[in-house]
Design a protein around this nucleic acid. Structure first.
Lengths: 129, 129
DNA sequence: TATTTCGTACTAACTTATTAGTATGAAGCC
DNA sequence: GGCTTCATACTAATAAGTTAGTACGAAATA
């Protein structure tokens, strides 16, 4: 009854972040990074990475000893999907109210504004053919 | 093992949106709005609203016939919490990369930029005591 | 060589979320 | 008064997500 989420769950994202950063990683490598933050079992990480492989977010190749996992979807693309889903779900697709909240919450400063301005200019610049 | 989410789930949010809009609503009223969009049982809506009441997002008062539910947390506050959680989870708390994605995805235009500029100005204005 | 280490596959337990059926009682209608 | 409508409470079933244990084989090591 519950629809399968099209985007990454919190835990899946946590693992993907590690693999994106390392570019390629064994279960053990990811496990050790996560262990620094919280108590978690090796097999838990393994299960999660297997799921991520099934979901096509990771692909694995057999190395000497263990599988080496690499991201099969680039970070930007996945994050963009998550942002889209969030904007749709919470703000019915409108980005501006989201930014309004960021401003109110003082997560965006004048300095950020200058950066954003630059980005928008560059972006609309690049679009005129 | 799975931590209870501190923010609203997709379905809970959908219901809260309706109640915020109506300001106060019976199960039936919400049910009818939702039914316009998708197939759903009356009792499903009832269950969800009861859960939202337990989670303190709604409070109910007995009317003549049925319970009347009202939001116990203002819309802005709830949405702000969701934005915070999202920014923390996906961008480790940094808002600027989120905006960068919105720009790249062309969800923000020059027109939005002017609005945002105005907002930030007004916001930083209000903060200098 | 015996044992410890490491890796995988398989299985399992448990939680939350989601959806809805059934029982029951009150109110309104014919 | 009997039947339909509507509301609630209780219960349940299913799916997805999360976490981790066990079995077992291979490799390293003492």
């Amino acid at each position: 009854m519950k629809p399968p989420s099209t985007t990454l769950t919190a835990q899946e994202l946590e693992i993907m972040k590690v693999v994106w950063r390392l570019e390629k990683a064994t279960v053990r490598a990811v496990y050790e990074v996560l262990l620094d933050r919280r108590k978690i079992a090796y097999t838990t990480v393994m299960t999660m990475m297997k799921i991520l492989e099934q979901k096509k977010y990771l692909s694995k190749t057999q190395d000497e000893k263990a599988y080496v996992y690499t991201p099969s979807v680039p970070r930007n693309q996945v994050i963009r999907g998550m942002v889209r889903e969030f904007v749709d779900r919470v703000f019915n697709g409108a980005a501006e109210p989201l930014v309004a909240h960021l401003v109110e919450d003082r997560k965006l400063s004048e300095k950020d504004l200058r950066e954003i301005t630059r980005m928008i200019r560059a972006n609309s610049e690049g679009s005129k053919k």
